[in-house]
Design a protein around this nucleic acid. Structure first.
Lengths: 188, 188
DNA sequence: TGTTTATTGAACATAGTGTTCGACAACAGA
DNA sequence: TCTGTTGTCGAACACTATGTTCAATAAACA
């Protein structure tokens, strides 16, 4: 019940299980991975698994946890949502494993958490702009957009360089696709 | 093997199963619904289910199918992505059941299909605008954004009136949150 | 070193999946 | 209304995965 991180055995088991899941996700869809698969890959006893994690999702979250905390800190500092691209690039492997299309049908636990983080960042930005649009709607719209682009980047194996994807994001986020060329000089 | 719609029994069974799943999704998350649950609710034999659908996802898609075909037609006609809000409003109950947060952790089969439809619409729009941005990235960004807003609308039980959500979408899609006031007159 | 405690491995009950098959009932077409 | 067709029933089956228990063991800690 104690299960503190101070015990080397605990650290080892958790790490092994997390790595097993991470590597499995690169091979087949998260949903089709069974706990048994993880146990086999990790070579860890069944009862040991349940001593640490409630279920598969808990393990997935744990995989994502360290990385997520770091992202949280990055976001608390920065105002720009761009931070997430830097972060994803730094942790390419983890993002590839946990956020790509491989996981689920268009979504995942990690996906959900990422969106929440981005949405908060957007909400902070939007708060100071005094718009009459519903804040939640704006946050949801922009967070979904950014996350969509991020997922695309992940799924295309980070083909575009970091600087380029950030520039793409900035252009998409700040204006219509035609970029700074508007149809008219602020009609209305 | 025939299983034509001309047989009343076939129609009845399929309808019953679809309605069972739809109603169950309103009660608990799609992932936690078992085929057994559907059978119990529908009062349909196990073997009968497999005579019609390969698995749970196939049934879900069938639930969504009629509605999806209609949406496809609407989209083929319209250039605007707004069409989807009209459609969602017309089929509130289905959208609520199949697209809300209730289904999965941030995503679903229906979600994926919707995004695909929206992305195609976006791609058509974007094709004619001659931008230097990667078309896929733009499509993914905008489709995710629109879908995110749509999901928000669904999850808030269509609180905002149809006209309002469409206007919100247009403003979000066509410019920064500050709306039509740009930072400068087309620099470059 | 001795003590604590995480891990093991097997066993178990439970639950869901997907398939089969004979008996039955509902159907379409004449 | 009759007749042949065919969808449905329901029970049985093998199979896979889940989640829990417990005594024995091995590893870590201090």
């Amino acid at each position: 019940m104690a299960m503190t991180d101070s015990d080397r055995r605990v650290r080892r088991t958790r790490r092994t299980l997390q790595e097993a899941l991470t590597s499995l996700v690169l091979e087949k869809s998260y949903e089709r991975i069974t706990i048994q698969d993880v146990l086999d890959r990790a070579d860890v006893g069944r009862s040991t698994f349940y001593a640490h994690f409630r279920d598969k999702d808990a393990l997935l979250l744990a995989c994502f946890d360290d990385v997520r905390e770091e992202l949280q800190r990055d976001f608390d500092g920065a105002v720009e949502a761009d931070a997430i691209f830097l972060h994803a690039h730094r942790h390419r492997r983890v993002y590839k494993a946990l956020c790509g299309r491989r996981i689920g049908v268009g979504g995942s636990v990690a996906h959900l958490h990422l969106k929440r983080l981005i949405a908060e960042s957007v909400r902070r930005q939007h708060a100071s702009s005094g718009s009459d649009l519903p804040a939640d709607a704006v946050a949801e719209y922009r967070a979904s957009a950014t996350l969509g682009l991020l997922m695309w980047w992940v799924d295309t194996d980070f083909r575009e360089p970091l600087e380029r994807i950030i520039r793409i994001h900035q252009r998409l986020a700040s204006s219509p696709v035609q970029a700074t060329v508007t149809t008219g000089p602020a009609a209305g």
